[in-house]
Design a protein around this nucleic acid. Sequence first.
DNA 1: ATGCTCTGCTAAATCAGTTTAGCGACCACT
DNA 2: AGTGGTCGCTAAACTGATTTAGCAGAGCAT
Lengths: 341, 341
Amino acid sequence: MGRNRATLADVARRAGLSKTAASMVLNGREGTRLSAEAHQRVFAAAEELGYRPNLAARSLRTRKTATIAFVSDIVATTRFAGDLIRGALDAARERDHVLLITETQGDATFEQYAIEAVLDRQVDGVIYAAMATRRLTVPAAILGGPVVLLNATSPDGLPSVLPDDEGAGRCVAAALLELGHRDAIALIGRNRLKEDDPEVSLAARARLHGIRQTLGEADVSLLAECFCAEWLPEHGYAAMRALLSKPKRPSAIICMNDRLAFGAYQALGEAGLTVPEDISVISFDDDPIAAWLRPSLATTALPHEQMGRRSVELLLDGGAAEPSLVAMPLRRRQSLAPPAG
Amino acid sequence: MGRNRATLADVARRAGLSKTAASMVLNGREGTRLSAEAHQRVFAAAEELGYRPNLAARSLRTRKTATIAFVSDIVATTRFAGDLIRGALDAARERDHVLLITETQGDATFEQYAIEAVLDRQVDGVIYAAMATRRLTVPAAILGGPVVLLNATSPDGLPSVLPDDEGAGRCVAAALLELGHRDAIALIGRNRLKEDDPEVSLAARARLHGIRQTLGEADVSLLAECFCAEWLPEHGYAAMRALLSKPKRPSAIICMNDRLAFGAYQALGEAGLTVPEDISVISFDDDPIAAWLRPSLATTALPHEQMGRRSVELLLDGGAAEPSLVAMPLRRRQSLAPPAG
DNA sequence: ATGCTCTGCTAAATCAGTTTAGCGACCACT
DNA sequence: AGTGGTCGCTAAACTGATTTAGCAGAGCAT
């Protein structure tokens, strides 16, 4: 790679000036007294030689690499990770930085390795990302420099970026109230583990809280709450069937995520009920399947791209210690209608 | 980041030896005549100081960075990208390398920028990845060093990694034949653009070829072939409805990808037909929804993780010029059954 | 005593930049 | 004539590693 690249010395020689002069001109240093002609000669020489600085050499002196480490626990298992990374990549490019990406797979040994690997490469800062919104403790090794937590918080008071799950909960509840749903709203996806252990999830509790708050303000309480061991389609399916076997049929269903909603759709289809005429469905995440479902599923989008972007901005500009919340926009789709009758 | 890290000079001083000695010991150089005691002292000093070499400094001298660039056109829009990256990350870690990831978004300016950014950082090689299997021309700038094409080929005869779509086509056809399907197999997802322009897709043509070949060997030809403008659920839905409106109902459907199959499921559901009793469905890709569908969808998996891994191996070990094909395993699921009657 | 080899180690160059300190020429002023 | 300041530029140090060339001392043979 990069054999026979021109060096600064080559440029200087060709311009008939010293390395010092060439360096100063190319870095646009203010206050140097180099002549306009010298500037021209350096620029011309650099242009002709296709000069590009060797960043390894530069960073040896300046201790800046224009490189950010993106350390995450698990990227592959969730389809959202791509958006997180994309947002970070975009913001990084805008600021002339580049991303060194590593994955720990939740394994302490791998994490240790990943962190050493990026620190050895003198990265300017670390974005420590979690794929499920949760609380975690960051390894001490990275505390020597700037760190931003992405989709996570820590007890250390480090700057962090989180989706506004509580706001999304309020938003979802408000959307149903607005349509006239009141006493027949059921919830699918309660989960003690997710709600009670912030190291597992912060989203479940926040969403639930937001929903309850807005319903409470309208003096409405939930018709039913189904617990699910996981937030997967099969659990949504089972929960929906359970709900339909009860005497009072719900007019609207809130699912804690789109995969549950997908399962709920399957159960509704089998029961011969149509969405949204018989039952409205609304959910969280905006998984790609939400738009593919028939009818398309209303949901609040996890703003992963925005979050990725924000994390880079926070890292490079320095950010406040309190978590930076990113709004989860409501995607109004076909699965919403006023209650029947 | 990395303030007050111990340097090699610190280690040497503490061990009471020269930098040269320390460097040689820590690099495990053979043939040096340093005493066992010197070795011990260096190791001890390094351990005590928590010494880690500064890779920027090292690579300035050695022109090796143990860093690989992963340049892709678009990562975010496809859920598969994560697997490609994960495989590459795993293989890279096993070989003590790290990945610098950039994205061009199919934009020439961004691509130029991305390539300069990674070359400036002296990467040891470039993995040039495409998110849709296709043919492309790589920018001349990266030809100065090792390059591997991932999910793509180029006319330059560079080493490349591709999924075995043709094999998958054969495999899909064979699975149906094996169950007894013969004269009522229909295909959803023909697409001229994808089939005829290798710069758009190599998969469509290869899959079709594989299917035709195996069916042909059994003297079977397709009952119908539906063209689709895109491979999205809505197109699969429309195609399935069209098929069902014809006099002869198919006994099995091959969809060119899982999203089409998802749409086909929706149409089958509406028509009151059940999978697999009335109609078998089989597909390509192994999108996560394939496993979530009811009944679960049989499909051939795109081996993205394997491919990512292979690309790193090829890059570091040097690879043959002919494309390295990675098998697409068949996932047998509930959507397959012998033809009715 | 001299020359030779071998052992165990180090000084210094090198990689490609940035940065500090300062040099010589020219001008103005007293 | 001497002094001081500005202008335009450069030599050399520095970053933290690797690597080349070679030095001092011991052991041995002649």
